[in-house]
Simulated scan of single mutants.
Amino acid sequence: MASRTWFVTGTSTGFGRELTEQLLRRGDRVCATVRTRAVMDDLVAEYGAALMVWELDVTDTPGVRRVVGDAFARAGRVDVVVSNAGYALFGAAEEVSDAQIRAQIDTNLVGSIQVARAVIPHLRGQGGGRLMQISSMGGQIAYPNLSLYHATKWGIEGFFEAVTAEVAPFGIQVTLVEPGSARTDFAVRSAISGQPLEIYEQTPVGAMRRAAAAGEFPIPGDPGKMAAAIIETADAPIAPHRLTLGSDAYSEIGTALRDRLEQLEAQKDLALSTDVSD
């Protein structure tokens, strides 16, 4: 396959960094965004003009539009957009502050929406392309102590359920990527928490905190393999609407969907009974 050009947000660490490195090694070009440009200096030195870097905070909507415009103008064409920037806010709903809630939503949900809104006109103008949104298994399931994080991931999945159909006539294919737990520094980088309340100590919230502190949650995902799967999916002629990565994601999403369907079927008679009578 001929080399292609990618636009990837949040490339300083984690999936974004791994994806960027793999793409550059195989000869593709990458338009990368980071909060601090210096973290990409080593890759710029190694790959030169194949790596184009912009500083960007995705909560800055005018900045998103400017950087996206600059990237498409400089690259000439962008084949694949990967919206990856985000983090997790830990804490029960009443433990996190108003400012923390706003920052979480502005980054994960509004920021991702604005990246999509900024790139869609450019993808449409060039006759199509791929748009890949990094979601999470947390966009299909939910744990106590992560309510605000889940709100953003479930929210972005709902957004793209509609957007996928909106942009399909223009040759734009969309994939929601739902990784499970992976051995990146995500948990360290995302160690933003609310103020713990003692009342939650003997609840599922407290149990989650203790289990996390004790390292009791398995982390099966290999970030290198996950990044390679994202690239392979983008190379395929037809984009899947969702890409589930990791044994935990496959297992837990499957269980959640089956449980949800079972609950729906149990309410069938009640649901039908509320229609207007003829």
Rank of each mutant, 00 (worst) to 15 (best):
V78H: 01
Y47H: 14
S83V: 06
R117W: 03
P169K: 08
A256N: 10
D185E: 14
A236N: 10
Q126H: 09
D269Q: 15
P204D: 13
A249N: 05
W6Q: 01
R209Y: 05
V205Y: 03
E252K: 15
V115Q: 06
A165F: 15
L197V: 07
T33D: 02
I156F: 02
E262K: 15
D60G: 05
F7S: 01
S277L: 15
I231L: 13
A165E: 14
P196R: 06
L123T: 06
E201Q: 08
E18P: 04
M132C: 08
P237I: 12
A45N: 13
I219E: 10
Y149I: 11
A213Y: 14
A88D: 07
V110P: 00
Q114N: 09
T175E: 10
F159P: 00
V81R: 00
T11I: 02
I230Y: 02
I253Y: 05
S83L: 12
E201F: 09
E232M: 13
G155M: 11
P220M: 09
W154S: 02
G14D: 01
A88V: 08
A92L: 11
P169L: 08
V67S: 02
L176I: 11
L131F: 09
R258H: 14
A116C: 11
T184C: 11
D278N: 15
L243K: 02
Q114M: 14
V276T: 15
V44M: 14
A211S: 12
I120F: 12
M1C: 14
H150Q: 12
D248W: 07
Y47I: 04
P121L: 08
A88P: 05
A116P: 00
E201P: 03
L261I: 15
V82R: 01
T36C: 10
T33F: 00
L197M: 14
T244M: 07
T255L: 15
A50I: 06
I238Y: 10
L109R: 05
V163D: 04
Q22R: 12
E201M: 07
V44W: 08
Y47E: 11
T244A: 05
E157T: 05
G158W: 05
Y149N: 07
L148F: 05
V68A: 07
R210N: 08
V110S: 02
F159E: 05
I120H: 01
V177C: 06
G69Y: 08
R210I: 11
I253P: 01
G69L: 06
P204Q: 04
V78L: 09
A103W: 10
T59V: 06
Y200H: 09
A93M: 13
Q173G: 07
M208L: 13
L123P: 01
G155N: 07
G221S: 07
S135Q: 08
D41A: 11
M226G: 06
L51Q: 00
Q263G: 14
D57C: 08
T255V: 14
L245R: 00
V81K: 04
I105P: 00
K225Y: 09
